[in-house]
Structure formats: structure tokens, C-alpha cells
């Protein structure tokens, strides 16, 4: 058999290049999380922060409190939510074969906001369960339900992904109308609470919600990566994947389950945050191509980075006020997005 050492070498170089891109993304993400902890009314130096995180004994109580109770959950929640949305968006665009697919454009976020508003406006209470978890639970159920509806549509119209996008858009408008209706009938107090959901905000992050989301992400990511090869073949066309022996309906159902868990949890804890799930996959595609072994982690990291950056801007934009993250996400993400997408395509695919 002929050997192709030159090709093998250039393939290894390409793999190394992509791994480096991933490492770079981890680096900038860590940096922005650190900055996120440093910025705020009480100026803290990066060394103080690192001390407080890794050697908490050496810093005074107040600093420790600020970092552990306020800044760190907020900063990490931003990264985790961004990661969840980035990964979900990437898988969604692959299984629906549509570059416009995202948790936001297909109505998952809107459904979650509707679920939350139901719980808030109708004032549900269950003994021994904090209201916040009840709201989050309701958001989760509605978001998962909307994914299920979409899945039904996918199965009904085998392969007609255009229809799925249209149905997703219909879902967005329906749920937005319902949320607006809820706002209309809500009183002053609950309205304030509702705004949190519809604009998206990270300020209510706690270690509990953070742990749950990070845990879900850690459980789901290995499954996503295990499906990387079949997902890559799916990008070349549904027929082609099927003809190569991939059980496409099963692959799609498993991906939808992962997506619904990620998005529903994200929207349940922080409300509606658009844009990330849509653009992170595009950025990842430009950076590492569509080999899903790299594309999925790259989308996850890009999402985490953009939201982390947005969270930072949200806090420093107006001194003393935390602007809802949903508002700044697009403002921060768009320049970044344009630079990468409009760059003349050269080098690696």
C-alpha cells in the first residue's frame, strides 16, 4: 500500500492548529472570567482575586464575601450559560441543516419565558420549594415542551427542515404574544419580576443553579462528542449520512434531547438570552471548520466567551447598575461576529 507521509503530516498539523484554537479560546475565556470578577464597585486586583479563589485563608472576610457570594457565581454563570447555548446552537444547526437555527429563533427561549411568566403572574406556591425554583421549573417544562413540538414537526415532515424553521418562528411569535399578554395583566410588582425573564439577567445566579447547569453541561458534553463523527457526516446531507449507516432519526432525537436540556436549564435560570446560540456556531465554523470533534467544543467556548464578555460590559456600562445581560449580548457580540464572518476566507476550512 502506498503511504502518504506528507498528507499525514499536514493532517496532523491541521489537527494541532485546531487544538491550539481551542486552547486559545479557553485562554481568553479564563481571562474574561477573571476580569469579570475584578470589575465592579469595589476595585479588586487580579492577584487579590486569585488569592481569594485559590487560597481563601489569606484575604479579609469582606473581599472573600464579595468574590465568593457575588462576583464568582455571576461570572461563572455567564460562562456556563454561554457554553450551554453555544453547544445547543451548534447541534441544532447541524441536525436541522439550517444556519438560522438557534434556541432563540426556534422559540425555546420564548417558551421558557412564557413558562416563567405563568409561574410569576399566577403566583404559584408550593410548600418547602423556593419560588425561584418553581419559576425555573415552569420555564424548563415549557421550553422542553416546545422542543418536543418541534421534534414532532421534524418527524412529521421527514427532512423538511425549512418547515421546521417556519414552525419555530411561529412558536416564537405565539409565545411572545402570550408573554406580552401576561405582562398586560400583571401588576406592578410581578411586572418587575417578569422583566428579568424577558430581558435575561445573570444577577440571580447562585451556587445552586450554577452547580446544576455546570453539572448538566458536564454530563451532556461527552454524549455530544461521542456523536461527533455521525454529526459530521450529517452535515454532508441527510441521505448521505443515512446511506453510510447512521441512524439519522435516532441521532436527531438524541441531539434534540440534549439541546432541550441545555436550553431549558439556561433559560430557566437566567431568562431569555438570544444571539449566542445563533452566532457561536458560525464563529466556530470559521475558526475550526466543521469537523464536529472540534466544531462542538469551539462553539461551546465561543458562546461562553461572548456571554462572559457581555456580562462584563453589562456591569461596567452604567456605573452602579447592572444592565440586563440580554440587552448587551448582541451589542457586544455583533462586532466580534462580523470580524470573524466577514474576514476573507483563507487557510483552513
Amino acid at each position: 500500500m502506498t503511504h502518504y507521509p506528507a498528507i499525514a503530516r499536514s493532517y496532523q498539523t491541521a489537527l494541532r492548529h485546531r487544538s491550539l484554537v481551542l486552547a486559545g479560546l479557553v485562554g481568553v475565556l479564563a481571562l474574561s472570567v477573571l476580569l469579570d470578577c475584578a470589575m465592579g464597585p469595589a476595585e479588586l486586583s487580579p492577584t487579590t482575586i486569585l488569592h481569594a479563589i485559590f487560597a481563601p485563608a489569606g484575604v479579609d472576610e469582606q473581599t472573600s464575601l464579595i468574590i465568593w457570594q457575588i462576583r464568582l457565581p455571576y461570572a461563572l454563570m455567564a460562562a456556563c450559560v454561554g457554553a450551554a447555548l453555544g453547544l445547543a446552537g451548534a447541534e441544532m444547526q447541524t441536525i436541522l441543516a439550517n444556519p438560522l437555527a438557534s434556541p432563540f429563533t426556534l422559540g425555546l427561549s420564548a417558551a421558557g419565558a412564557f413558562g416563567a411568566s405563568l409561574a410569576i403572574v399566577l403566583g404559584w406556591h408550593v410548600a418547602h420549594v423556593p419560588d425561584m425554583w418553581l419559576t425555573a421549573g415552569s420555564a424548563f417544562v415549557c421550553a422542553a415542551l416546545s422542543v418536543w413540538i418541534l421534534d414532532m414537526l421534524v418527524r412529521l415532515r421527514q427532512g423538511g427542515t425549512g418547515t421546521v424553521i417556519l414552525c419555530g418562528v411561529a412558536l416564537v411569535f405565539s409565545f411572545q404574544a402570550l408573554v406580552a399578554l401576561m405582562q398586560f395583566v400583571a401588576n406592578e410588582d410581578t411586572l418587575q419580576n417578569l422583566v428579568f425573564w424577558t430581558l435575561g439577567s445573570l444577577t440571580r445566579a447562585t451556587w445552586g443553579t450554577l452547580g446544576l447547569l455546570a453539572g448538566a453541561l458536564a454530563c451532556i458534553l461527552p454524549f455530544s462528542l461521542r456523536a461527533a463523527w455521525p454529526l459530521t457526516t450529517l452535515r454532508m446531507g441527510e441521505d448521505r449520512a443515512a446511506s453510510l449507516g447512521v441512524d439519522v432519526p435516532r441521532l436527531r432525537r438524541a441531539a434534540l434531547l440534549r439541546i432541550s436540556l441545555l436550553c431549558a436549564l439556561a433559560v430557566a435560570f437566567v431568562g431569555v438570552i438570544g444571539f449566542i446560540g445563533l452566532v457561536a456556531p458560525h464563529i466556530a465554523r470559521r475558526l475550526v471548520g466543521e469537523d464536529h470533534r472540534f466544531y462542538l467544543p469551539a462553539s461551546l467556548l465561543s458562546g461562553a466567551f461572548i456571554l462572559s464578555l457581555a456580562a462584563l460590559v453589562a456591569r461596567v456600562l452604567v456605573p452602579g447598575v447592572v444592565v440586563p445581560t440580554g440587552i448587551v449580548t448582541a451589542l457586544v457580540g455583533i462586532p466580534f461576529f462580523l470580524v470573524i464572518v466577514l474576514r476573507r476566507g483563507e487557510g483552513l476550512p
Binding site: A14, T232, R235, M236, G237, G245, R285, E290, P349
Partner: peptide, 26 residues
């Protein structure tokens, strides 16, 4: 093995990557 009538989609994947993906698809 069936080879579909439609062409592979023009995605950002090198020909070699596409070959390897087909090889490891299952």
C-alpha cells in the same frame, strides 16, 4: 451501501476529513 443521487453538501470540511468521517460514521 447506497450512494445518494444528490451531491455532498458544500460544507467547510476537507475532502480527507469527509473520508475519515464516512469511515468512522458508525
Amino acid at each position: 451501501l447506497y450512494l445518494p443521487q444528490t451531491l455532498p453538501e458544500p460544507v467547510r470540511l476537507s475532502v480527507l476529513d469527509a473520508m475519515l468521517a464516512a469511515r468512522h460514521a458508525i
